[in-house]
Computed example of a mutant assay.
Amino acid sequence: MLELRDRDTGTLIAGRVDEASTFFARLRGWMFTASPKADRALHITPCRSVHTFFMKYPIDVLYLDAAGTVVGIDEALRPNRLGSVVKQARSVVELPAGRVRETRIAQGHRLEFQFTAHRGEGDDPHDEQI
Rank of each mutant, 00 (worst) to 15 (best):
F24G: 00
R40P: 03
T22E: 07
G120S: 12
K87N: 15
G83Y: 05
R90A: 14
R101N: 05
L42T: 04
L27S: 02
D6Y: 04
C47D: 09
E121T: 11
K56D: 13
G29W: 03
V100E: 06
R26V: 11
R7S: 10
V85W: 12
P125A: 03
D123K: 10
R16H: 15
V100R: 09
T116A: 13
E94F: 05
A67S: 15
G108H: 12
V70R: 04
F115K: 14
V93I: 11
H126K: 05
C47H: 09
M55Y: 04
L64A: 03
G120Y: 10
T33I: 02
E3N: 14
A38G: 13
A34I: 10
L111I: 02
Q129F: 00
L95M: 04
P36C: 05
E94V: 11
A67I: 05
D74H: 06
G29F: 06
G83E: 02
A66G: 09
E128K: 07
V61E: 01
P58R: 08
Q107M: 13
R90M: 14
G72N: 03
T69A: 09
V93D: 04
A34K: 12
V100C: 08
T69V: 13
V100S: 05
H43N: 07
R7M: 07
D18G: 07
Q88G: 10
P125Q: 09
G15D: 14
T11I: 12
K56M: 12
H109T: 01
Q114L: 15
I130C: 08
E94K: 06
N80C: 13
D6Q: 02
V50T: 05
F113I: 13
V50K: 01
E102Q: 15
E19T: 06
H43G: 00
A34F: 07
D65I: 09
D123L: 10
F54G: 03
I59R: 01
H51C: 02
A41S: 11
A20R: 09
G10Y: 01
S49Y: 09
Q88C: 09
R28E: 04
M31R: 08
D124W: 03
V70G: 04
Q107S: 11
P96W: 10
R99W: 07
A97G: 13
W30S: 01
I73T: 12
N80Q: 06
H118D: 12
I59K: 00
T33K: 15
T9E: 03
H109F: 00
P125Y: 07
D124P: 05
Q114F: 04
H109P: 00
H126Y: 10
F53M: 08
R99S: 14
H43T: 00
R110C: 10
A106V: 08
V70P: 02
H109W: 00
P46Y: 09
E94M: 04
A67M: 09
V85D: 00
R48P: 12
V92N: 06
L77N: 03
L62N: 03
M55E: 01
D124K: 06
G83D: 01
Q88L: 15
F23P: 01
L95K: 07
E121P: 11
R104G: 12
I105K: 10
Q88N: 14
